[in-house]
Design a protein around this nucleic acid. Structure first.
Lengths: 265, 265
DNA sequence: CATGCTAGTTGACCCAAATCAATTTTGCAA
DNA sequence: TTGCAAAATTGATTTGGGTCAACTAGCATG
């Protein structure tokens, strides 16, 4: 998605520049070597190729080394909801543990390098390395938290808030991986962005264009530059509408966000 | 929410009528007794009371014995998105494993009986009982799958489809617990339903009223009866609009579901 | 360097559902 | 039993963003 393409994947986990992302704290050198033994293989997926598909039997989880991937769920009639965009250091596929069948699809957005890890081997290893077990719980727990944020966005935010939230979110994910947090390349299309955020791609274009007019960002094609992160954050939180600073007497507050959907009961 | 109120909670997991729901297959009698030792206490929450609140330190997970609970996430300005309604046999709180802080709130919808289980004890026990570890992964994996379905609903379904999906979903959850799948009591308000489904409570009322007119359901207050599950299922899938069976020549298809948001790229 | 082809953009129009408003019904506490 | 607040319903009106349509910009390919 961003940063240098690392297409020459190293052979060992211990040589891998991102293993501290997919397997943070608490795993010793010896354990890393164990892990290295079970990683099935490093594979390259090209744009549009599937890491896994809906309904296929669950056998492996995938650690992203470089590139980016979208995951999405499907309806019978062909409608699609993208549930996430994933970049280097993220682990995919654990959501199939329960049913033993993938409940969504994962597709590369660009050339993407991954480690495929057979789940049953990973589970065995987990029994010897408690911190690895814990790590799996953490990864899933984090995914749940992300998904909850997305539900909040889909259920309660307007178009401006959605886009602003999206940009801010990308920015901080890049920052975490020490890429630029103010200038980056989108690997997904406008249409994918719209699908993910629950809006039409035309609306994505229009809102981005307005953000540019207002000096919040600049865009050319898929390159974004965030020019006013502070204001963008405010918009994401719903503070972009400039609440009338001194509400005239007799004038109903007419808050930009209705009291509906706020906590009451 | 439904079924007999089981307010006299038994003292032991092995006596508990629902332990096979919160801890399915693969746990032996001896392990159950171990588990029983670490369950901190059985508690009763009354309507409106919190099991846990946003930002509070994570210490326990909660197994629901009876009653029902809503979980929801919050925005700074007070907006709320309900992320789930939970009934007997479900396990809450595992989504705080990663940050060690609850990322959402859980609040009883009615008088609700729960087992509180300290997470660190549960984790220790998990190292002795691998199937318990696996069970935790399963529970979280299932929650992710549920959440993905909800994202699909929030992002891509219209009001009719949302309500139909909701009713069908409740029905099959009750069936799994061998309650009636065609007649049940809602423990949540219209407003909560609307919030959960991403629509105004007025719309919930209107759509329910129309479903009743059309003979799909009957409702009085919070008691629902599903009268035509088959058709309801069709509506949930987007098939309620009766695609014109023989499209006249020259008449644009005007499909009830646009080709947008379907899989293309 | 035409020729597509895909992705992105912009304008005009429309509609599903939100909002606003007015009642009605219900559950409970005094 | 009465009184009230919360919950639910129903109607009128508005609107944010979807849909349709036309067009442009990049970019690959023969």
């Amino acid at each position: 998605m961003n940063g240098p393409d690392q297409l020459h994947a190293p052979i060992l986990c211990s040589d891998c520049g991102i293993y501290q992302l997919c397997l943070p704290t608490g795993i010793g050198q010896a354990d890393i070597e164990l892990l290295d033994k079970i990683v099935k293989n490093r594979r390259i997926f090209k744009r549009g190729e599937y890491l896994y598909r809906l309904g296929h039997p669950f056998h492996s989880v995938y650690a992203l080394r470089s590139g980016s991937v979208k995951t999405y769920v499907l309806m019978d009639d062909g409608r699609v909801q993208i549930t996430g965009f994933h970049i280097a250091g993220e682990l995919l596929g654990l959501n199939a543990v329960n049913t033993r069948v993938y409940s969504c699809e994962a597709r590369a957005l660009e050339t993407t390098s991954v480690c495929e890890i057979p789940f049953d081997r990973l589970e065995e290893l987990g029994q010897q390395v408690p911190s690895l077990q814990y790590q799996m719980l953490r990864v899933m727990s984090q995914e749940i938290a992300y998904n909850q944020e997305l539900m909040l966005l889909l259920g309660k935010k307007n178009a401006d808030e959605r886009l602003a939230t999206y940009l801010i979110g990308l920015s901080s994910r890049f920052a975490k991986r020490s890429y630029s947090s103010t200038e980056f390349n989108l690997s997904m299309s406008r249409s994918d962005i719209g699908n993910y955020l629950g809006m039409a791609e035309e609306t994505v274009c229009r809102v981005l264009a307005r953000f540019e007019q207002e000096g919040l960002i600049s865009m050319q094609r898929r390159l974004v530059r965030l020019k006013d992160i502070e204001k963008l954050t405010a918009v994401a939180q719903g503070g972009g509408k400039a609440e009338s600073p001194s509400p005239a007497v007799g004038k109903r507050p007419q808050s930009p966000v209705s009291s509906r959907n706020k906590q009451v009961g």
